[in-house]
Design a protein around this nucleic acid. Structure first.
Lengths: 214, 214
DNA sequence: ATGGTATCTAAGCGGTGTTCAGATTGCAAG
DNA sequence: CTTGCAATCTGAACACCGCTTAGATACCAT
């Protein structure tokens, strides 16, 4: 009997057979296809042919369900960034370039997941420790990349990290959500990303007292 | 009789006496005090001692109400930015500095209004012409400031505009919403703003081929 | 005074998140 | 194998929400 393995929670199969997992998958599908706002516990339950109260036996509520999915998203996001940085040239700023590109591209490709992690919705993700834990390695990548750029310079590396993060987040939001105040025919997101990262890196280099060229 | 002035819509006073305006004020108060998500047409109506269906005689629905308030917010936001730029030193990058500071500070002080304009909620603000019109001058400020920085250089000014906007938006979000992935004890938002703008300006200068100092 | 129009109300539709008592089922111990 | 516990699921309900409709009410210009 393989019932001993508790962490292999795929075995849970009572009346429905692996609800929880089905709920997670179904909800993620809705997030990807119809967007974050379209998620509704009742609808998910209905779609799975199960009572509308059933999900509450696997999640304390909608917030927790979304928090679990957010933690998943953080993990996959982190892996994506790690891969990108790993396959970049062996140069600190080339790594930063790859990191920023990967960040923005992930955010544009997986808008729903991205908004789940960084969007402003009712959920206080920060209150779920699982989410915090899942997000920490992602942050660590950024820290190591920036540490490489900063080298032994005496500057506030954390500030540079947050600024890099901010620019990526801002660009992703601007391109992805096409906010108002976005008229200039510069609809070319690709160029925007390129120039944005270039300006970021040039700014950091200047801030560190490094010469302009690579 | 002062009934001829139609644009002075404060005179509208039937059963309740200036509902519409009361709804707008009450909703704005909720946005400021309890946040955007706490807005509910029914609650507003109840709070004003009026039927829960009454608001629908002044707004086609919740979306339109929020769109009207968003347009207001854009106007006040634009005025704030204009003032800041106007009282800055007569130098292109000093103006950009003032603009960015004013942007971020407004976003941090008026989080509710800021999220109404730039947050991700159910409302498609872009579909309301009034919002577009109200946002255009705000964009124009940015355009003129960046135009001053760019001068006669042959670069894509619109891209630089959008990147500046993105960094401001990203920083505002990061500091204001304290997203996850924000552990570094660099809780000093003031320093973050300072370094952020400094890096942005240095990056733009480098992108334009200008020397580092001012 | 009268008619039209703007305004407001009451009631209702369908949707949501959530809770609760009770029915059902699987599993493990006796 | 039976018994009992605990996990799982259901049906009904509560309190909200946005929105619509039919009808009552009040104002204003004629």
């Amino acid at each position: 009997m393989m019932s001993q393995s508790a962490d292999l929670e795929a075995v849970r199969s009572y009346h429905h057979g692996d609800l929880r997992r089905a709920i997670l998958e179904s909800t993620l599908e809705i997030i990807d296809k119809q967007g974050l706002e379209a998620v509704s516990l009742r609808a998910v339950a209905r779609r799975l042919g199960v009572s509308e109260a059933a999900p509450y036996h696997h999640f304390s509520g909608k917030q927790e369900l979304l928090a679990v999915l957010a933690a998943d998203a953080y993990r996959s996001f982190g892996e994506c960034l790690t891969t990108a940085v790993g396959s970049a040239a062996d140069d600190p700023f080339a790594r930063l370039n790859a990191l920023a590109r990967a960040y923005i591209e992930y955010g544009l490709e997986s808008r729903g997941r991205y908004r789940l992690m960084f969007g402003n919705h009712m959920v206080d993700l920060g209150e779920y420790e699982e989410v915090q834990v899942a997000g920490r390695p992602t942050r660590a990548i950024l820290e190591s990349v920036i540490a490489g750029c900063v080298g032994s310079a005496k500057v506030d590396a954390a500030a540079i990290e947050n600024i890099s993060w901010s620019l990526c987040h801002g660009l992703t939001s601007l391109i992805g959500e096409s906010e108002i105040v976005f008229d200039g025919g510069s609809g070319d997101g690709e160029r925007l990303i390129e120039v944005g990262i270039s300006i970021l890196i040039a700014g950091i280099r200047a801030h560190l007292g490094l010469p302009a060229a690579s």
